[in-house]
Write a protein that binds this DNA or RNA. Structure first.
Lengths: 214, 214
DNA sequence: AATAAAATCAAACATTTGTTTGATTTTATT
DNA sequence: AATAAAATCAAACAAATGTTTGATTTTATT
């Protein structure tokens, strides 16, 4: 599906509101007001509120598609290099698309609110798990990864940590007395912290080598 | 605040529906129907829908209160023993109160939907962090924990992993071909898996000793 | 410049929402 | 058994919801 600038602007406004107030908690009048358009334009462009969130998902998921595959199917990288690049890209994507991943999280918490979106998410998860399995078996073949590790639990920790970190960023900021940083600076700070933390955990749990705290 | 059996039954029904459909996505008519009561009883007992979810929080948070303190302030345990017991209790509580923690997660994702509930959650987090800091400094004094570790990031990983695991339990179940297990059996299976996984990650990251995959 | 198509709008639509009312039934107290 | 208090109910309330309508304006095409 192709969307014009107007549609994309509506999608972006909706994304922000859904992330802040939830899908059910956001009215199309909220969206119309913030996007500075008439309420009827949402039905006009997308058909319905439900179709609007589906449009949001289809746009954002298309973005992820290529990145992931390119990294993991690159033949010139070792397993350990791929892990590093992959973790960077996961953390980066979650931070860059905070609002969207907030919504994804909410949809996962709802048991089957929307068939279409459940399918979207399931599809994405399956593709990720698949690529990760390849990466892990490459690591095992290279002799750098332990065998018989529960990959799905490891991914649960990676995604869970990033989600939790972003959901609690305000708390983390206060706790570590980082209020003096600007929004932008703090984002960068948290991004780096998360990358280091996750690489440390991942490599320490999965690889045969031991890595110290930096 | 004290609640009778009827009120507690309403709270429990509401808890289930809020977890499934979100706060805004659940109408008081949904709750009334499932609890088999008249719609007006919710206002009659609690005052409003908002006050109902506050009642839910006050009931469930009171439960957590004591457990945590008892474990961590016990003088007879080593830091490592406390970590083990604490992790067991965290995972156990999240699994036992899936619905409630689903709601807590949602409320964390909403930026300040409700002042009262934000304050509830903030209070709980602060108390936890406080106790954990004590535990960590005990471990450092005992010489079993590394110094200069970011405790808040470690807790982010613990809570994030448990949340993510529970939010994705259906996916995990399918992925690992565990559909033959009953709901009850699967819960126990996941509980054990999570405990082992988190202890492994925590101890491997935080302690000076090295622990192998079991 | 004339015509057709697309975009925008205020208003109306039917539902659904949380809450209140006022009457009635049930339970507890005297 | 009489009285008071608590619980329950159907109905009504106003406000908010997602969507549609039909007229009007803007843009694109001929």
């Amino acid at each position: 599906m192709e969307y014009g600038t107007k549609q994309l602007q509506i999608i972006e406004v909706a994304e922000g509101l859904f992330a802040k107030k939830g899908f059910a908690g956001t009215s199309i009048r909220d969206i119309a007001q913030e996007a500075d358009i008439n309420v009827s334009m949402i039905s006009y462009y997308f058909g319905s509120k439900e179709k609007l969130i589906e449009a949001l998902f289809s746009v954002r998921m298309a973005e992820t598609e290529t990145t992931m595959v390119n990294i993991l199917e690159n033949q010139d990288l070792t397993a350990m290099q791929k892990v590093n690049i992959w973790l960077d890209s996961v953390v980066g994507r979650f931070m860059f698309r905070k609002n969207f991943h907030n919504i994804v999280m909410r949809e996962q918490l709802s048991s089957n609110r929307s068939e279409t979106i459940t399918a979207f998410i399931m599809d994405l998860k399956m593709r990720h798990i698949d690529l990760m399995k390849q990466l892990i078996s490459l690591g095992i073949r290279e002799g750098v990864f332990k065998e018989n590790l529960d990959m799905s639990l490891m991914m649960t920790t990676i995604y869970g940590t990033v989600n939790q970190a972003i959901a609690n960023q305000d708390f983390y900021r206060r706790l570590n007395q980082l209020e003096h940083l600007s929004e932008e600076e703090f984002n960068l700070y948290l991004l780096e912290k998360l990358k280091v933390h996750l690489k440390f955990i991942f490599i320490n749990s999965v690889s045969n080598e031991q890595q110290g705290l930096n």
